[in-house]
Design a protein around this nucleic acid. Structure first.
Lengths: 199, 199
DNA sequence: GTCTATACAAAGATAGAC
DNA sequence: GTCTATCTTTGTATAGAC
């Protein structure tokens, strides 16, 4: 049983519609507790509607899970398009790292990491989407690293794909570690990663 | 609901006693599904006893969880004492990395990572132990890195503690990623980490 | 779209017999 | 130490009214 009210959530100023609101709060729950560890009862209380109404919008929890994955995909695209507008790999990587550190402030873990951790207990339909999301993250970071090598601002051992993989796994792992460790764990790791790639 | 039989488990040749057997299979479940996602029913079927008997040994699931953490602590000490017997940091790091790659073959995630991911839903008593286990891992790897710097076989940017943090977070994150990605994800990351520290 | 009421299965836990 | 039986609470889900 989890206590959590809709009003706790920041950034829900422009409440689009109920379905979106439900998905957003579900993502919060996944980041905090994991997909398997929150119930429709928890969610209904957080949204401020009944369980029955939740089931009206998302008949099965799997339906909700899929909507969450779709939303994560959209969110990733939004971030990507913002970064694409930046001119240099230098600016791009700065944007990404600032963003990473910012995400970690809440003590919540990345929703994709959370779903990876529960990979063996989520429905197959969700597994596919989690796999897709995971792959896209790596590929995109890899591109930026390659760009930065071309610009001559990065320098590191190994190829961009391997480095992208190491960076993301480290970052995601760090968020989890920092839950059980002191607050500066995240910044230490992000700085250390930064050290590894900068000329 | 999870289907899993006791005989599936390798390495349970010397079944010490029932309590130990239960804890061992519980660790398997945590690695595969997470603490919250397996039930006493699942566990009882895997062990081959009834739920009531499980409750006899571990009245509450929290009791079982604590026993699991204790066991993980013992296991960590056993590995540590093996590594301590090795002469050089070179041998030690090789042992660790071989071990890391080996662990990852099963597709199960590190039990500590699993418990970190569920940090907000496990009992407080378990949180303390998970925090302790997390810290010890980092400190120990940090010592070895420092030793290797002294021997002149390692070379990297940043201090040993930061590097230890980056390595472990990356490794743990990689195990989770590799669930959703192809099989060579793990070896790519481990090799990349290795590249970062070797002279 | 939202509610009340209800069904049904699963999960955690206990009592008491052997 | 193990069992059967039972209890309670929770989780998922549906039916039907407004």
């Amino acid at each position: 049983m989890i206590g959590y009210k809709a009003n706790d959530r920041k950034g829900l100023v422009n409440m689009e519609n109920r379905k979106e609101q439900i998905v957003n709060i579900a993502i919060d729950f996944i980041e905090k507790y994991g997909f398997d560890s929150f119930s429709y009862k928890d969610l209904s209380e957080a949204v401020g509607i009944t369980k029955a109404t939740l089931h009206h919008h998302f008949p099965k929890k799997e339906d909700l899970g899929l909507a969450v994955c779709e939303k994560l995909k959209v969110k990733a695209k939004v971030v990507k398009s913002k970064i694409d507008k930046l001119d240099t790999a230098q600016e791009k990587i700065k944007y990404i790292f600032d963003n990473l550190l910012n995400c970690a402030k809440t003590g919540d873990i990345c929703p994709i990491s959370s779903l990876q951790a529960e990979y063996n207990v989520i429905p197959d339909s969700m597994k596919e989407m989690v796999a897709d999301l995971s792959e896209r993250e790596i590929d995109y970071l890899s591109e930026i690293l390659e760009e930065g090598l071309g610009e001559g601002i990065f320098e590191f051992k190994g190829n961009p794909k391997s480095m992208a993989l190491m960076i993301l796994t480290s970052y995601k792992g760090a968020i989890q570690y920092s839950r059980a460790m002191d607050d500066n764990t995240m910044s230490t790791v992000v700085e250390q990663i930064y050290n590894q790639i900068m000329k």
